[in-house]
């Protein structure tokens, strides 16, 4: 268990990772930008547990808030205004503020 890297309000980008069998990061958020809504705690790694390993040490889990209009640009009139998704820390990358 390592100290959490992100705090509320941090801007993050979800990694695009292929070649793993069981992941809990749906395709529609991979490669997309969001904002940390909250830190949820530490949990065993489901990718490792799915293949019979312990999933330890536990890893940090966050709720990341995405803009529906950002995720689904071509549909932006009908989509949800915001979508909160739980994402494990090893899927998250820092984003520099581009002001």
């Amino acid at each position: 268990m390592t100290a959490q890297r992100f705090t509320n309000g941090d801007r993050v980008k979800v990694a695009e990772i292929t070649g793993r069998r069981h992941v809990r990061t749906p395709g529609y958020i991979q490669g997309r930008h969001g904002v940390i809504e909250r830190f949820c705690g530490y949990f065993p790694n489901p990718e490792e547990r799915s293949i019979g390993l312990t999933g330890l040490p536990k890893i940090a889990l966050y709720r990341v808030r995405f803009s529906g209009a950002d995720l689904f640009k071509e549909l932006s009139s009908a989509v949800a205004d915001s979508i909160d998704v739980e994402v494990f820390e090893h899927w998250l990358r820092e984003v520099e503020d581009d002001i």
């Binding site: 809990r24 749906p26 689904f72 009908a78 989509v79 949800a80």
Partner: peptide
Amino acid sequence: IIEPRVVLLEFGTNLNPELSIRVHDST
């Protein structure tokens, strides 16, 4: 996620259009 207001209408729910919709995906 992509058309929540349409789906809610299928449940007979006509939401106030002013409301912001937030969907929580339990991943």
